[in-house]
Simulated scan of single mutants.
Amino acid sequence: MQLSAGRVTLLLALHSALRAAAVAARAEHNEIEYNAVDNDLAVAEDEMSLPSFVKWIGNVTAPVGKDVTLHCSVHNLGKYRVGWMKSDTRTILTVYDLVVTNNPRISISHDLQHTWSIHIRQLKKSDHGCYMCQLNTKPMRSQMGCVDVQVPPDIVSSESSSDRSLAEGDSARLTCTARGYPPPTITWRREDGQPIYVLGDFRNGQKVRQVTGSTLNLTRATRRQMGAYLCIARNDVPPAISKRIFVYVNFRPEIEVQQQLLGIILGGDVTLDCHVEAFPNTVNYWLNQRDEILLGGQKYSLSEQKRGYRVIMRLRIMRVSRADIGVYRCFASNSMGTSEASIRLHHMQRPPAPAGHGRQTGARHTEAPITAPTPSSAASRRPADLTTALLVVLTRWR
């Protein structure tokens, strides 16, 4: 097929137009790429001109009352400004070299190079938290450092047990609440260093030197568990603190007499002892064989030796006469009850001097507790003669 001259001319013109359009499109694309590169370079230059942090601020740990400092190091600060704020409360503390908070314990310093330091004097518990160092760039740049304020332990008396009083056989629960940071550890010990009986009494319970925890349980308390207990709270911040809680165990008096029969030679002195265990404290007194209450004087000497819930009642009779021979009773009474015990005073004859010896002189034993001599094999089948036994004892003492 042959084309006319007009059609050929039209095709040539169309081809030239397409080529021109392609060249223009490529030129426009190259221009866009060049502009994007220029923008990237401009952004990079802006990034390089912005300030940056040199190093991490870091965290500080200190006890209450100490001074702390946080350092914010900035490179290429230029026209920008540094500010400090409390992160949790969003409170602005400083702007550049100006302190804007009303807290007189806060101050700011600059080393004239690139470090801005915030100082907190005499730390308080409320100073605990994180602090932000800000740069007023767009967008804002910031970094944080935290202050860990350690608080020494403190026992909350209103939430802890006070002195306790209970009857023997009852159980007691002692509590102790302490605050501080880090959270304190609580241990219990006896003030006198004696063991603590838990999970039962001293006969079948568990015996430990100390108990850890805010609660101390005394199960079926006995008189041996009476005393002062120390609740001790401690953490990593000295000093440790303690609270003293006294446990009173009430029980009726119990009296033990070690010698229920005492022998005495007339004219000598004799001492009678009664061992009492009781709490609360007892009213103690002696009665003679005529049920008369004995009072101190030239004839009688009364004394007591007290140690904890134990008391030794002591009666000393001077220049014993025949009228003093008989039964003496000791009494102990408190709010839990009354108890008594008796001691019999027995008259002994002075043994004759051994044959062939003159009169003996020297110290004279005036008290002679009655003890039976060991029977011989020949006399083991009949009771020992009391007079013979006394003679043997006195002969040995002489």
Rank of each mutant, 00 (worst) to 15 (best):
Y197G: 02
P152K: 07
D111N: 15
F202T: 09
Q258W: 13
V149W: 05
F279K: 08
L112T: 12
R252H: 07
W286R: 05
S109C: 08
G200L: 03
F279C: 08
P239D: 02
N281A: 14
W286E: 06
P383A: 14
V68M: 05
T395F: 15
H75I: 06
T61D: 03
Q360G: 12
A384D: 11
V249D: 02
V100F: 05
L386K: 15
S109Q: 07
T271Q: 13
S342T: 14
R179Q: 10
E168L: 12
S160Q: 08
A341H: 09
L302M: 13
A389H: 13
P253K: 01
T137L: 04
R26E: 13
V151M: 08
L315Q: 00
P375L: 09
P139N: 02
S303M: 09
P280K: 03
T387N: 15
D163Y: 07
L14G: 03
F279N: 12
S335W: 03
T282R: 05
S214G: 04
A36N: 13
S16P: 01
H71I: 03
G337K: 07
R398C: 13
D67C: 03
L216Q: 02
K125M: 13
Q122V: 09
K125G: 13
N35A: 10
P51T: 01
R329T: 14
I232M: 02
Q210H: 08
L216K: 01
S376C: 10
I196V: 00
S4Y: 04
G227F: 00
T175H: 11
P63M: 03
S161E: 05
A178G: 06
F251D: 03
Q289N: 14
N288K: 09
E277L: 13
P153Q: 04
N30Y: 10
W188Q: 01
R223V: 02
A368N: 15
K207Y: 01
G362A: 15
R209V: 04
L386F: 15
T137E: 06
L295A: 14
R189C: 02
A27I: 11
K66Y: 07
D67Y: 05
I241E: 04
D38T: 12
P375H: 09
A378L: 14
C274L: 10
G227I: 00
F279I: 04
R307H: 13
R244E: 01
G356F: 10
C231Q: 00
Q2Y: 02
A36M: 11
I57N: 02
T91H: 07
D38W: 08
K243T: 04
D88S: 14
R316C: 00
E33P: 03
T338G: 06
R252A: 13
S339G: 08
W116K: 07
P184R: 04
I118F: 04
A379T: 12
